[in-house]
Design a protein around this nucleic acid. Structure first.
Lengths: 124, 124
DNA sequence: GTATTTGCAAACGTTTTGCGGCTAC
DNA sequence: GTAGCCGCAAAACGTTTGCAAATAC
């Protein structure tokens, strides 16, 4: 993988994002720096960065794919009301049953669902 | 939600499936019983059944949406090689940190990634 | 010099939607 | 009777791809 201004910018946007942006959100953010970048290039780079293990894909409540640049161990809490994703920095233990079935876990993704504090407090 | 032959058939296919079929797989299976059902009807019913909480959506390795009719507590193991999803019937504990952050967990989805026993044994 | 990457635009495959007719209740 | 459902086909949507020009090394 050769270096390119566009790919570096896509990765930088993801690494400095607290939310979990979609391809078109990333496109808009990179555009402020590289105005003539195309959406196709963003998609191509997201695919390559994912294949090379620099970024991951996140489960969400809409149909679009959401991306994440922070690869340190954490889980997601998805609010059923506002659809916000909250990062929680903790490690959940792998059930012993998996090893017994011959399934060696390399990585994991956990999503918890509920209503976040904000949405519970503002009763609307 | 009114009762209909088409919706009952879609739900029945999902409840009696061991795999995690996509909309077009469900369409093909229902078609053996109701030959003139349309794909649009399958999609519409999947949406309604999901909204009413009778079925859920499953994370997968392709771009299509996979569905599941078995709502009892379990997690998924997704093989990186054959892309098969294995159900594992166990409950993983919710980290205490979530409650401390004011996040009340109503449900959860966990996916473990790795290579399944089959793919490890048949070295190919 | 050449293999990779780009912008552009057209193509793709999945899912949604608008319509007039049909069905459950 | 009427609100909700159907089949059909077209539209919409997010994403991928083909191409010739530009770029990295």
């Amino acid at each position: 993988m050769r270096s390119s201004r566009q790919r570096d910018a896509v990765l930088e946007v993801l690494r400095s994002s607290c939310d979990h942006p979609t391809a078109d959100m990333i496109f808009e953010r990179v555009r402020t720096e590289i105005p003539n970048i195309s959406l196709g290039t963003v998609y191509r780079n997201l695919g390559q960065l994912k294949d090379e293990g620099f970024i991951t894909v996140v489960e969400s409540s809409d149909t679009k794919v959401h991306y994440e640049g922070n690869l340190t161990d954490h889980i997601h809490f998805l609010c059923k009301k506002c659809h916000n994703i909250t990062d929680v920095w903790c490690k959940s233990p792998v059930p012993s049953q998996l090893a017994k079935m011959g399934l060696q876990v390399e990585s994991q993704k956990t999503v918890y669902y509920g209503v976040c504090k904000n949405c519970r407090d503002n009763i609307n």
